[in-house]
């Protein structure tokens, strides 16, 4: 462990490499986190299927690539299919738990998560999968730092999707209805907004965002049926740190998490990278509650 820190200190380009890889992957985390914040804020449901949507998006992209198509086509395909799946899940299960107590909805989405995970295991096999994008590599700092172009493309795509979402939320009628429902569902209902429809669109939209993120994941990294939960946990962590409804903070937290995680993976060894992620989750949650306990809010 100490040796690895020494290596980083001795070879600054390596440090740049580790951080850069982390930042680039962080943008993908930001998409999943933004979706989670959306569902959380609007429906008051913490969706634990988040990561499984991501992985499913990845597998769909794998299928698209295996069909001989350009893997980038997988992104819109995954988004559309996941939108449909999200809608279906809302109409069949999630709508029944939206107004129940939080643990019920948490557990219901946890069940859905296991269901999706195992269905993917049956459908796509329990192998690690990845897609070659066909893009090359750039070299920087005299060839010591490699930048795979697909990561940059993924980063840029994530930002573009983010910008589109902001536009959608600000400018379209549906976006405005979603924001109104998030602020006060009852008032929105009185004013004639069909909140059930809003919830359905929100949940489906979130699934689509995750599906798109999954397409980017499978091109830059790997997917595996059981890896979903790590994306859920990452998204949750980012939302806890950044708060609901603050896209800039979500992006900042996501990039920070990506960099920190990659760094920890290098220093502690790759086999402990996920342990670090989950450990960080515990630390962040405890730290947050400690801070809240010191400045409690008004109580009646």
């Amino acid at each position: 462990m100490l040796d690895n820190i020494q290596i980083l200190i001795d070879a600054p380009p390596l440090l740049v490499q580790v951080l850069l890889d982390g930042l680039l992957v962080g943008a993908i985390f930001a998409l999943a986190a933004y979706g989670m914040a959306l569902v959380w804020g609007v429906m008051n449901v913490i969706n634990l299927t988040q990561g499984d949507f991501v992985i499913l998006g990845g597998f769909i992209t794998v299928s698209v690539a295996q069909a001989g198509l350009n893997p980038f086509l997988g992104l819109p395909v995954a988004a559309v299919l996941l939108f449909g799946l999200g809608w279906l899940l809302y109409r069949s299960v999630v709508y029944r738990v939206v107004d129940k107590d939080l643990f019920i909805s948490l557990l219901a989405t946890f069940g859905l998560s296991i269901l999706l995970q195992q269905l993917m295991n049956q459908g796509f096999g329990a192998d690690v999968q990845s897609v070659r994008s066909g893009l090359g590599t750039w070299f920087a700092l005299g060839g010591l730092v490699t930048i795979t172009q697909v990561k940059v493309v993924a980063f840029a795509t994530a930002l573009v999707i983010g910008a589109l979402l902001v536009w959608f939320m600000k400018r379209t009628r549906m976006g405005q209805a979603i924001r109104a429902t998030a602020q006060n569902a009852r008032a929105a209902r009185i004013l004639g907004i069909d909140t059930d429809r809003v919830y359905a669109v929100t949940f489906a939209l979130n699934a689509a965002i995750c599906g798109a993120a999954g397409a980017l994941v499978v091109m830059t990294w790997i997917v595996h049926p059981y890896l979903g939960i790590t994306y859920t946990v990452r998204a949750f962590m980012i939302v806890v740190v950044a708060g609901l409804g603050n896209l800039a903070a979500v992006i900042a937290a996501a990039l920070g998490l990506g960099a920190a995680e990659n760094m920890a993976g290098f220093i502690l060894g790759a086999e402990f990278q996920l342990a670090f992620v989950y450990g960080l989750l515990v630390v962040i949650l405890v730290w947050r509650s400690w801070r809240l306990a010191r400045e409690r809010k008004v109580l009646r």
């Binding site: 946890f110 069940g111 998560s113 296991i114 269901l115 995970q117 195992q118 269905l119």
Partner: peptide, 9 residues
């Protein structure tokens, strides 16, 4: 395990 997920839901 598929059945398990379904059962939970």
């Amino acid at each position: 395990r598929v059945a398990l997920g379904l059962l939970i839901v």
